[in-house]
Simulated scan of single mutants.
Amino acid sequence: MQRLARMKRELQMLQNNPSLPGIACWPKSIDHLEAQIAGRSESPYEGGVFKLKIDIPERYPFEPPQVTFVTPIYHPNIDSAGRICLNILKLPPNGGWKPCLNISTILTSIQVLMAEPNPDDPLMADIANEFKYSNEEFNQKAKLWTEKHAIKNNLFRSSVQEKPTPLTEKPSEDAVMPEKAEPVNSNKRSLPLKEADQEISKMSKTPKSS
């Protein structure tokens, strides 16, 4: 019940929140969200758009969401399975998650982590060492990965930083796609915010079976 009430409030907040630069997020269902983060300028991820999935646990907000990268990224704090080493995604005493934090905070923190890796707390030790001791080589590899996975195959223009998609809106299916982009699978549609909000209301009123 706590999770349903919290998600309803968060969806309403997201709907009324002004856009966050380079960040987009929308619901697939009540407990599954999708997001995209644009790489910041002057970072090796510049021009790339990285897709993430967000799973809301049953005990949310007392447990943090599970956030993973779908788009491959060359980064010391993100492994090959898309798992992220970020303090606020962990429960105390080893982590910094608090129930007052929210999805917007998480996505903003991940965007900062992308631009400012933490090699002293890595998931990928070899990449962390490369970042610390051979930074030019790290930047070259990160740029190549970005070009291969986050630019050629993304559904947004690489200029998403210039015209960020509002946090609460799913990217338009008729948006101009970059050259060489993969075709959009129009059979997969996300659940609109209004419908998700209505579904949460229905579930919160449905008595649990014994």
Rank of each mutant, 00 (worst) to 15 (best):
P99R: 02
F62Q: 07
T71Y: 14
W97F: 05
P93Y: 11
R83Y: 14
F69P: 00
K132G: 01
N87Q: 13
P99D: 08
I84E: 02
G95S: 09
P99H: 06
E116S: 06
Y74L: 12
M114A: 02
F62C: 06
M124T: 06
L101N: 09
K98A: 12
N139K: 14
D121P: 11
I103C: 05
N118S: 08
I73K: 03
N87D: 15
L91V: 04
F62Y: 14
G96P: 00
A81P: 01
S109A: 12
P64S: 09
N102K: 01
E137D: 08
I103M: 09
S80F: 15
L101D: 11
P61A: 09
P65Q: 11
Q66H: 13
G96M: 01
L91C: 10
I103K: 02
L101Y: 15
D121I: 15
I84G: 01
N102L: 00
I73Q: 03
N139E: 15
P65I: 15
L123N: 07
C85H: 06
E137C: 01
Q66R: 15
I84S: 01
K132L: 09
Y133K: 07
I84R: 05
L86A: 02
Y133A: 03
K132H: 05
F62D: 10
P92C: 01
N77P: 02
D79E: 11
N135H: 14
T105H: 07
D120K: 08
Q140I: 12
L113S: 10
S134A: 07
I88T: 13
Q111G: 07
A128I: 12
S134W: 03
I110K: 00
D120T: 08
P92I: 01
C100R: 12
L101V: 11
Q66P: 04
I78E: 05
S80P: 05
L123Q: 10
T108Q: 15
P72T: 07
G95L: 08
K90I: 05
Q140F: 06
T108E: 15
T108A: 14
D120W: 06
L91E: 11
G95Y: 15
L101W: 15
L89H: 03
C100H: 13
I103Q: 02
T71R: 11
E136Q: 10
N139V: 10
N118I: 07
Q140M: 08
A115S: 06
I103N: 03
F138P: 00
L91R: 09
S109Q: 04
V70W: 11
Q66Y: 14
P64F: 05
E63K: 12
L86R: 06
L107D: 03
T108N: 07
E137R: 05
P61C: 08
N102Q: 01
R83A: 08
P92F: 04
K98F: 10
P122G: 01
I106W: 07
N87I: 07
E130Q: 11
A81R: 12
P93V: 13
N102Y: 01
Q111L: 09
I84M: 04
L91W: 13
R83I: 11
F131S: 03
F69Y: 12
Y133I: 04
S109G: 02
F131A: 00
H75Q: 03
N118R: 03
T71F: 13
L107A: 06
M114E: 01
D120V: 08
R83F: 14
V112T: 05
N118T: 11
P92Y: 04
P92N: 02
F62R: 02
I88Y: 07
D79S: 09
P65T: 13
L91D: 11
E116Q: 14
I88V: 13
P119D: 09
I103A: 00
A115F: 05
P117Q: 11
